[in-house]
Design a protein around this nucleic acid. Structure first.
Length: 257
DNA sequence: GGTCGCCTGGTA
DNA sequence: TACCAGGCGACC
């Protein structure tokens, strides 16, 4: 469930579940995760209180009272499973955070690509992220300046978190469809007018998806993603699938120019 | 710039 | 059995 809107929903649930609580224990149940954090550092989380939980792009940051940051990223298939310490673990439990009050947050991730890291206090985290889509400082003009030197196609550029934070493969395709921009147009070739509709589209797509869980229901509301061969919702031309930077891109060759 | 590896499951 | 997957960092 991992683009900005889904991570935002996850953070909201997490915030309700973890805010103000004290960590009793954190267990990493998958070797790929355990490799990232030493056992002693993991144990040192005992007694830490969660001051706040925030989202930046697709990253989730637990701000601890001692200044440290517990940093989670869902990658492709991560999600939080909230419950009580005595509950049965979900099938793909990869990390388990138990709180003093007996409640529990479990990182549930079939593909086990999610990451968890612990950052020391008093360091400025550099997540390498550009502005959030909601950032008022993000304008057609600012985008135009950033894209000026990028000859790469716009679609892979939208996946570059340094350009805009939080967009992923689905909503990048959806946004381009809405803005009627071809995914393979060189980023630097886009006009201010096109970038203005692109930004508007990105904000609409993100807003519409925020709050909705990633379910079959929300998938069916997608306009182009995963609709290869099906008629474009605007012009009935069959949606095409191409591969860019190793990722599927769906688009309408007729109305995206 | 593109491609691969990380992981594992779902689907054609 | 093969291919595909909402991400991202390492690599050529």
């Amino acid at each position: 469930m991992p683009e900005l809107p889904e991570v935002e929903s996850a953070v909201r649930r997490l915030r309700r579940a973890a805010l103000g609580k004290t960590i009793r224990r954190v267990e990493l149940k998958h070797p790929a995760l355990a490799r990232r954090v030493s056992p002693s550092r993991l144990r040192s989380l005992r007694g830490a209180r969660v001051l706040d939980v925030e989202r930046r792009g697709k990253h989730q940051l637990f701000r601890l009272a001692d200044g440290r940051v517990l940093h989670a990223h869902f990658r492709m298939t991560g999600d939080w499973h909230l419950g009580r310490a005595e509950d049965a673990l979900p099938k793909f439990a990869r990390a388990v955070i138990t709180f003093d009050d007996g409640s529990r947050v479990v990182l549930d991730d079939p593909r086990a690509l999610s990451t968890i890291d612990i950052h020391p206090a008093n360091v400025t985290l550099d997540l390498g992220l550009g502005p959030e889509p909601s950032d008022p400082g993000l304008t057609a003009k600012s985008l135009h300046a950033v894209l000026a030197k990028k000859r790469l196609a716009i679609k892979p550029v939208l996946l570059d978190q340094r350009v805009i934070a939080g967009l992923g493969n689905i909503y990048a395709a959806e946004s381009l469809w809405r803005a009627r921009i071809a995914p393979d147009a060189p980023a630097s070739s886009l006009t201010l007018k096109q970038l203005s509709s692109l930004l508007k589209a990105i904000r609409q797509v993100i807003d519409r998806a925020t709050g909705a869980r990633y379910t079959d229901d929300s998938v069916s509301r997608l306009d182009v993603y995963d609709r290869e061969g099906k008629p474009c919702r605007r012009c009935r031309t069959p949606v095409e699938r191409i591969v860019q930077a190793g990722r599927s891109t769906y688009y309408c060759r007729k109305c995206q120019i």
